[in-house]
């Protein structure tokens, strides 16, 4: 859109609208933040009120009940493993399917479609089968019971992005490298991988977000409290005979604030990277 004089007013108006819109949009988060300082009875009895005092009890309880530090570490480990490995294997397979030469072209196309099938499958449908597989494979209660399914759910999406991205690369690149006497690992590592930067960020961000917040698979496959991820955090307040809403909210705040801070710092890269990767692809 060009910035002609006629639309200056339009720009102003849309600017104001944007500001108001953003404020309204943020309201639920802000409200939750306030709620985390209220006591349980305040929440029930006087929903609209602001907290009486800045009550830190809820946070104390939340920290006591949840081992938040450990959950962060667990989530981080699972995320790094599954996203890292997921990226690696799909990088290799997408490149192979896109840029390498198959004797059997049909096979190549067929494999591509095969990998795309997973796009439409909701992971919840697979919950029970995944847990049967985990049990049969003797993986139950290990970190791999989570990491492997997470990698699997990334395959389709990563393939879509990376395949399209590779398609857009000019053929000359590889030819030049080959003339220089490159072997396959060198080609992939030194040449292609660096060029994949825009998609890398997108892939990593999409997938880390997914893993970070994934709940159903984690809830079914993890039993040891010591291995719980962040997403299990909120569910831990639920109990047979008592629940602590203020505590849940405080725990939620404790969980999302670092997430938001992390996001705040990396925001530029995340958004820009997504932009480049997702749409170019």
């Amino acid at each position: 859109m060009t910035n002609s004089a006629g639309s200056k007013l339009g720009r102003r108006i849309s600017g104001i609208v944007l500001a108001i819109f953003t404020l309204i949009w943020m309201f639920p988060l802000v409200w939750m933040f306030f709620m985390s300082f209220k006591t349980n009875s305040e929440i029930y009895a006087a929903p609209l009120s602001l907290p009486q005092h800045l009550n830190l009890d809820n946070f104390a309880r939340a920290l006591e009940t949840l081992n938040i530090g450990r959950m962060y570490v667990n989530t981080l480990i699972v995320a790094v493993l599954s996203v890292g490995l997921g990226f690696l294997v799909t990088f290799l397979s997408s490149y192979a399917l896109c840029r390498m030469v198959f004797r059997n072209k049909k096979l190549q196309r067929g494999l591509l479609r095969f990998f795309q099938l997973g796009l439409m499958i909701s992971p919840f449908i697979l919950l029970f089968p995944i847990y049967r597989i985990t049990v049969q494979g003797n993986l139950y209660n290990s970190i791999w019971s989570l990491v492997l399914p997470y990698i699997a759910t990334q395959v389709s999406f990563n393939t879509l992005l990376m395949y399209n991205f590779f398609k857009g690369l000019p053929a000359e690149i590889e030819e030049a490298a080959l003339i220089d006497g490159c072997n396959l690992p060198q080609l992939l590592g030194r040449l292609i991988l660096p060029m994949t930067k825009p998609v890398v960020v997108t892939v990593i961000v999409f997938n880390v977000l997914y893993v970070w917040n994934e709940y159903p698979i984690a809830s079914v496959l993890l039993r040891d409290e010591s291995m719980y991820t962040l997403s299990m955090g909120a569910s831990m307040f639920k109990g047979a005979y008592s629940v602590d809403n203020a505590g849940i909210i405080a725990a939620s705040v404790l969980i999302i604030v670092p997430e938001l801070i992390f996001y705040g710092f990396l925001q530029r890269y995340i958004v820009d990277g997504m932009v480049a990767g997702a749409v170019k692809g």
Partner: peptide, 15 residues
């Protein structure tokens, strides 16, 4: 604004 409006998607769906 972009960052703020984007932020809900960071948060765990349970929360």
């Amino acid at each position: 604004c972009k960052a703020l409006i984007f932020s809900p998607s960071i948060i765990s769906p349970i929360i």
